[in-house]
Amino acid sequence: MHTKRHEASAPLFDGLSPKDTSAPAASLAGVTLAYGDEPPVLNGLNLAIPAGAFRYLIGPSGAGKSSLLRLIYLGQLPSTGRIELFGTDTAGLAPGKLATLRRKVGVVFQDFRLLEGLPLLDNIALPRLIAGAAVNEARAEAAELLEWVGLSERSNAQPQSLSGGEQQRAAIARAVISRPSLIVADEPTGSVDDAMADRLMALFEELNRQGAAVVMATHSLALIDRFPHPTIRLGDGQAHESAP
């Protein structure tokens, strides 16, 4: 059943060539992040996510996984240190260039962040609309992704009427619709059952095979076992990489 649906979605992902392979997708050097007077969550962290890489981000609660992801997707500035995306230093970037850079990053937020007031289809089409795609084109791609994540019958639903699992699937669809060069996902399978988790992981892996780097925070060791990739363990404000 999964194979059949995967084939149905093939036109969306066919013909993609790896993007931005010349520089690391993300590179952090000496990054420290502290909130107020609290001890730093990240302390002089050095990390590189090569283009086209797939990395799990693991660590106990409070280790700074979400904070690190926020830094990578440019949702927050570090206290100190340097962050580069696709070889571009993000410090002091002009707003227009920042927006262009952000379009190359697909984000799956832990709290989904679907917009009320927009039907599900338009929520998913939003990144394409922002990038300047025609409405019909963007909606057609969104409809295709909705079918892939099993929500085609909910395309006109308001986000608040969806279950947590449905919202999570929709958030993933929105994150990947622009075929980003870097996908940052915070617990993207935390609210779905194993079958749907496998299905979503297949989508992430397919995008990764086609050139997108993936950084995925997860608590699920079972998921890592089923889909083995190198891990980055966060602890004491530092990142420690290990092979699968």
Partner: peptide, 16 residues
């Protein structure tokens, strides 16, 4: 033109 049509769709997010 076309860009405005896309904005018309997205404007729903800032309405109500």
């Amino acid at each position: 033109g076309r860009e405005e049509s896309a904005a018309a769709v997205a404007a729903g997010a800032l309405s109500g």
